[in-house]
């Protein structure tokens, strides 16, 4: 990508950000809650693809970090009378430390081994959390009672999305991003040319853990009552991957192109085919995989390319 293009994408990003920030001014409660879902998954899918896009390491650990964020806010506020914002500050740090430790331990795994490990991670942490509650801290229910509205949480998430984009933009331009792309193409080659593959991967994995935990913490007031089963649900990890792949992970703005249509499609199906939503969703997946194997972004670029040829 040329320098000019990068500046252009930054400007576009800024315009989109301003538009996104205006949503609460026009949306009613219903559209606000859809916008909030979109914002949440935009942040999760974008930070996911910062790591998984270039390296091709499919991580299913999103729910693990998201859950840690939500759980910490719940337990902090209910069991230790902490302030919401204090817990929001603590949660992502814990998420990052956890991701760092897990990264060091597991990023030597590759391919399907890494996928399976990350899939088990959320379940492992959920069980660990329950074990700690059961044996040490106890539980009286995890209540997150604040006066934050969906519009407030939405704005926080949009700001967070902007930060994640900036970081992604910077990473793409940096030596780190270059290193990651080489790792994704051929890890052996990357090692041979002197790239510290482990460090590069761990840095990005830690960042995505930080962001997912922060999202989990910020969204907690929306749920009011935190159940470990809900916040550590493996569904969150899968939806993030599906949304990112639908958009395309080759570009920084790819995931959002996936998140928006996917969230709207999901809403349409739930609203109109409530009793068959799982079935219709499954059919939608098949259609996506067959007709958009490289995601929406890939399709757009393909169309642009073929139009380019025809004009020649």
């Amino acid at each position: 990508m040329s320098h000019e293009n990068e500046i252009k994408s930054l400007v576009w990003g800024a315009v989109l950000l301003v538009l996104a920030a205006c949503v609460p001014l026009v949306a009613n409660g219903y559209w606000m809650s859809i916008a909030l879902t979109i914002a949440m998954f935009t942040v999760l899918a974008t930070s996911w693809s910062l790591f998984s896009g270039p390296t091709h390491y499919i991580s299913l650990a999103t729910a693990a970090f998201f859950g840690v964020g939500g759980y910490l806010v719940g337990t902090g506020m209910s069991d230790y009378n902490m302030d919401f914002w204090t817990m929001v500050a603590i949660a992502p740090v814990v998420g990052a430390v956890l991701a760092f430790l897990i990264g060091i331990a597991t990023l030597r795994l590759s391919g399907v081994y890494f996928v399976i490990f990350t899939l088990g991670l959320a379940e492992m942490i959920r069980t660990l959390v329950s074990w700690i509650q059961n044996n040490f801290t106890g539980s009286r229910g995890l209540y997150v009672l604040t006066d934050l509205t969906e519009a407030d949480i939405y704005i926080y998430l949009v700001i967070l999305a902007a930060v994640v984009y900036l970081v992604g933009w910077w990473v793409n331009r940096s030596r780190l991003g270059f290193a990651l792309r080489i790792i994704g193409n051929d890890e052996t080659v990357a090692r041979h040319v002197g790239i510290n593959t482990a460090t590069s991967k761990v840095i990005l994995f830690t960042f995505s853990g930080f962001v997912a935990a922060l999202v989990g913490a910020l969204i907690a007031p929306r749920y009011t009552y935190i159940e470990p089963n809900g916040v550590f649900s493996p569904e969150i990890s899968f939806i993030v991957v599906i949304m990112a792949l639908l958009g395309g992970t080759g570009r920084l703005w790819g995931p959002i192109v996936g998140v928006i249509p996917f969230a709207l499609l999901q809403e349409y199906i739930n609203a109109n085919y409530s009793n068959y939503s799982t079935l219709v969703m499954g059919i939608a997946f098949l259609v996506i995989v067959y007709f958009l194997p490289k995601g929406v972004v890939g399709r757009i670029e393909q169309l642009l390319a073929s139009r380019g040829r025809s004009t020649w």
Binding site: Y30, W31, S33, N270, A271, S274, S277
Partner: peptide
């Protein structure tokens, strides 16, 4: 008018909003 929340709080909130607004 009934909706499935899929035992998912996020879905539940959206469906509750849908009942009220749509």
């Amino acid at each position: 008018i009934e909706y499935d929340d899929k035992t998912n709080p996020g879905e539940h909130i959206k469906a509750a909003q849908r009942l009220a607004e749509v």
